[in-house]
Amino acid sequence: MPYPSYAKLTDEDVKSLYDFFMHQVPAAHVPNKPNEIRAIFSLRWPLAVWDWIFVKNGAFTPDPKHDAAWNRGAYLVEGLGHCSACHTPRGIAFQEKALDSTNSTFLSGASLDGWSATSLRGEMRTGLGPWSHADLVSFLKTGHNRFGSAFGSMTDVINNSTPYLNDADIDAMATYIKSLPANEMQQPHAYDNATTEVVQKLHVGNVGATVYAGRCATCHGQDGKGYAPFMPPVAGNPTVMDNDPESLINLVLNGSVPLVVKGTPDAYRMPQFRVTLGDDEIAEVVNFIRTGWGNKASMVTADDVAKLRKSTDPTSDNVIILKMR
């Protein structure tokens, strides 16, 4: 429950939510589920201490240095949208290390539940630096743009949240997010077509190229440029170039669930390869993608794949995340 973000809500919006839940959401007879929290963790007083240390009280205060659109976007991103819950690193007490734009850690990317939520700041390779305002608006409305598609936990946001906002609010969110500066100066992605030639020629012994040509190129193109906006590129994609390869490995292992925008399901989705490809093969194709077409990202190992395979095993009691709804 992201209440540290909801603490920023105005009294008027809290009242509106209360009226909606009490008067517009119909009652449903559903028995309560048994409490799965062990007794020692049911004590409430430690939470009061946690709140005192980490939660800021008081509603959002507009920043007079910015215009109305920026402040509206800040209110939605920092508060109701609770984007920080996934995209901001957490500390030793599982607290978000920052709750607003006054701290450069805010929305700088984080690992959570088997996914890497990429930076929403202005980095040119691993963030949203190359995205235009229109690109961000498109992503919030549809889950797609010329750089990528929503996946993992972001699927819930697209399926249930941001497409239902009005145009002014989506525009305000994009205005605010695009104002966040980069934490790291990075050279922009420079496309290199040499990888395309490797895919086309299928050099003997290049396992990554062979797997890519047979399993990936149909949707993402032999040139890595994809077929935007519905089949995203792997060349220049911030998820591919992320310092944390977790999301890319997870997508290859487990695929993605469909995006359903206002009741209309997406016609395309990433299939899973956890059954048909071994850890070595997945590591090889992930490395081929992360180092190809000018991406120049770090390498992964078969052990990295094996760990994520185990933690996302849908038959395991210890599964972290594999949303198959």
Rank of each mutant, 00 (worst) to 15 (best):
M1V: 11
M1I: 07
Y6D: 02
S16H: 07
S16W: 00
L17G: 13
N32H: 11
E36D: 05
A39M: 08
A48S: 14
V55Q: 11
K56Q: 14
N57Y: 04
N57V: 00
A59Q: 15
F60P: 11
T61F: 02
K65P: 00
D67H: 09
R72G: 07
A74G: 09
A74V: 02
V77T: 13
G81D: 08
G81W: 02
G81H: 01
C83W: 04
F94W: 10
K97Q: 15
L99Y: 03
S101C: 02
G109R: 10
G114S: 04
T118K: 12
L120I: 01
R121S: 02
G122C: 01
G122E: 07
T126D: 04
G127A: 10
G127K: 10
L128I: 13
P130E: 05
P130M: 09
H133G: 03
D135M: 05
V157H: 15
P181H: 09
P181Y: 02
A182H: 10
E184K: 13
H189N: 07
Y191S: 06
T195L: 00
T196K: 14
E197C: 00
V199N: 10
L202V: 11
C219G: 04
Q222M: 11
D223Y: 09
G224A: 01
A228V: 15
P238F: 11
P238L: 07
N243S: 12
L248V: 06
N250F: 06
N254D: 06
V260H: 12
V261T: 11
G263I: 01
T264A: 12
R274S: 08
V275N: 13
E281S: 12
A283Y: 03
N287F: 01
G292V: 05
S298R: 12
V300F: 01
D304K: 08
K307S: 03
K307Y: 03
K310T: 04
S311T: 08
T312P: 00
D313V: 00
K323H: 15
M324I: 09
